[in-house]
Amino acid sequence: MSIRTLTLATLATIALTGAAAARDQIRIVGSSTVFPFSTAVAEAFGKAGKFKTPVVEATGSGGGIKLFCAGVGVEHPDITNSSRRIKAIEVEDCKKNGADITEVKVGFDGIVLANAKTAQPMKLTLAQVFLALAKRVPVDGKLAANPYKKWGDVDPSLPNRKIEVLGPPPTSGTRDAFAEIAMEGGCGKAVGAKEADLTGSKCHAIREDGAYIEAGENDNLIVQKLIANPGAVGVFGFSFLYQNADKLQGATVDGTAPTFEAIADGKYPLSRSLYFYVKKQHVGVIPGLHGFIAEFTNDRAWGPDGYLAAKGLIPLPNKERGEVAGQANNLAPLRM
């Protein structure tokens, strides 16, 4: 290969890049929790054959919203997935850059604490979860570094096993939700927490003395580690428990087991809503965007018997599903 051919080839590829300005493919960014569901819809949508299969990136909820709100135009994504509701400050950012958005609530996700089926099932309360995992806990009315080494130390009703929890790292949305719902919720119920001035986001800190092990986010490795180590408890999204129900068992929290039904009707305390946001200006410009929303909000996808339920998404109640679908398909503007 002579140098001349190389130069020519390079120039040709650069010319090619310039030509591809228009986009005929939906681009989706955002939460890795919504990723398995969003990709399943994208694939079904692409298989129907009318449009190209959308490209879905797992950037995390925050990163996705940042990309999404950066502006209007083909170089910006059309949809962002989020495992939490968009924040007011992010909506401001979107407005500033000219993007009008529609919110679509797609369903629920439970955060489960699970261990191997070979081990004794765990029956936990939120307060126990907090006491076992918090960095600082109230001891005799004073705040102290977490002294509990065994579950049995937290509460005599729990097994006398070392506290060993595999959970998501601080970068993950699941961890944020766990801190917000489980840690903060447990903190409110723990005896003596309020007196020790432990409220709100002060309860979010998780201990760093080795009892809580950061083990990747939603990862099959966690499942394998739990099976190999029956003493350990894992924290992850419900879909992993659902797919591995033959090997793992979910701990009951405040007396409720993490089942499909309990999460759907809100009995199970550790659940959160999942969303995606659509940029209205892109509808009609990017081919198929409207069709994608219709596919996602079709009962064949997000209904109780839909293919997303088979992937572990917990569907919205029937009534709410109808309302959300109506709003989504009419591209109703976001109301905070």
Binding site: T17, A20, T53, V55, E57
Partner: peptide, 17 residues
């Protein structure tokens, strides 16, 4: 740069996802 993505179509050129 967005190459960690779910992409179903086999890329046909240097600018395809």
């Amino acid at each position: 740069i967005g190459m960690v993505a779910f992409i179903v179509d086999v890329p046909g050129g240097f600018t395809d996802p």
